[in-house]
Amino acid sequence: MTVLVTGADGYLGWPTSLRIAARGETRVVLVDNFARRGWVEEIGSTSAVPIADADERLAAARDVHDLGNLSFVEGDLTDKAFVDRLLQVHEPSTVIHTAAQPSAPYSQIDGDRANYTQDNNLQATRNLLWGLEEADLTDTHFVETTTTGVYGAPDFPIPEGGAKMRHRGQEDDVPFPAMAGSWYHLTKSHDAANMRLAHQQFDIPISDVRTAIVYGTETEETRASDRLKTRFDFDYYFGTVTHRFCAQAVAGYPVTVYGKGEQRKPFVSLEDAVEGLVQLATDANDEEGLTVYNQVTRAISIVEIADTIAEVGREYGYDVEVEHFENPREEDETHEMEIENDRYTSLIGEQAQSFEEGVRDIFETLTRHEDTIETHEDRFLPGVLADD
């Protein structure tokens, strides 16, 4: 059995590749073009955690975990000829598609970045789906990490994928409407529609994994060696809210909450997100239909995130305060998000890591890399602090 992991140099793709390889005799082919490293450098930031190049990572996987079933291919998924060769040569039984330009703020910088994000993300997914059809690989299980951001923030519980629509006395199950709020999130809405079409036309088994905001620095496999670490972004464009708040704390600044901060967002730890994808790559490989998973373990309010980070930060010797500032955005600061996740929780079983445990992991990591955080503090400080 061969599993192809795209975006395998990334925050989620790399530890997922390691775990799939560690679970058995599966051959794992890693694919990436290192674009994420370039995007982060472009906006003047870096990974807080030094990350090895592909050759060194594979060597470390062999040395530390005795994994000889990993191989790496460098290439651009927007190049259809490359994708066609890739699929024809390796004939994967499963594709784990984590490759994308993943930043909503980056996609909002200007029209060029918006166009790039949509061109890059949509073309890569289409090339893979059509490549499977044209290579006669329509039994291959296609798994993509989309995002819970496709749902927006409706005032009703979010179903795991579809919704029941009733009109003039009749009802049917329909895809959840695209309510995304950024040019990036819309790429995942379009991908979801394209995957549905590919399933209808080509009968490819599809798992649409709508991944929540991921937090954390380690998985069981990456803890074993510094050479196996995954990246950790903390800047405004590529760092998630939890990671940015932790960076503020380590750099000696208050954790900033805009407005009340009582709005809840969906979250999942890196450990749990990896496990969900690995289960789909291995144990759930007999799927035949199109299944949507809400890859989320719980919704957490922004103020709870800040308070937890302050509390854990003090355990590590940081004098962390939480400060509230006027919210420059028009949003419901008390929105109580509810999101169904029965399919996903049945996939992973018990949650492996609580939010507090994940925050401890982050501080364990960042205390080793304070200099990098402080050197790049202008990349994550909000204007209300940067101007002080």
Rank of each mutant, 00 (worst) to 15 (best):
A249L: 12
V250D: 02
A251W: 08
A251I: 05
G252C: 01
Y253V: 03
Y253W: 14
Y253I: 00
P254Y: 07
P254I: 05
V255D: 09
V255R: 04
V255Y: 04
V257C: 05
Y258P: 01
Y258H: 08
G259A: 12
K260F: 09
K260V: 09
Q263M: 09
R264K: 15
K265S: 11
K265Y: 15
K265C: 11
K265H: 14
F267K: 01
V268N: 06
L270V: 07
E271R: 15
A273Y: 08
A273R: 04
E275W: 13
G276K: 04
L277A: 02
L277I: 02
V278G: 07
L280W: 11
A281L: 11
D283H: 07
D283F: 02
D283N: 10
D286F: 00
E287F: 00
E288F: 00
G289T: 07
G289W: 00
Y293E: 05
T297G: 07
I300M: 13
V303R: 15
V303D: 13
I305K: 07
D307Y: 04
T308H: 14
I309H: 09
I309P: 06
E311M: 10
V312Q: 12
G313M: 08
E315W: 03
Y316N: 07
V320F: 10
V320D: 12
E321C: 02
E323P: 09
F325A: 14
E326L: 10
E326D: 13
E326Q: 11
E326V: 10
E330I: 14
E331I: 07
E331K: 08
T334N: 14
I339G: 07
I339L: 15
E340Q: 14
N341L: 02
D342W: 03
R343W: 01
T345V: 10
T345S: 09
S346W: 05
S346F: 04
L347G: 01
L347H: 03
I348K: 01
G349L: 01
E350P: 04
A352M: 15
Q353T: 15
S354P: 05
F355W: 13
F355C: 08
F355G: 04
E356N: 03
E356T: 11
E356Y: 01
E356R: 15
E357D: 15
G358R: 08
R360V: 06
I362K: 10
L366G: 05
T367C: 12
T367G: 05
H369N: 11
H369T: 04
H369L: 01
H369F: 12
H369G: 02
E370L: 02
D371Y: 00
T372F: 03
I373Q: 06
E374Y: 01
E374Q: 11
E374S: 05
T375K: 12
E377M: 03
G383A: 11
A386M: 11
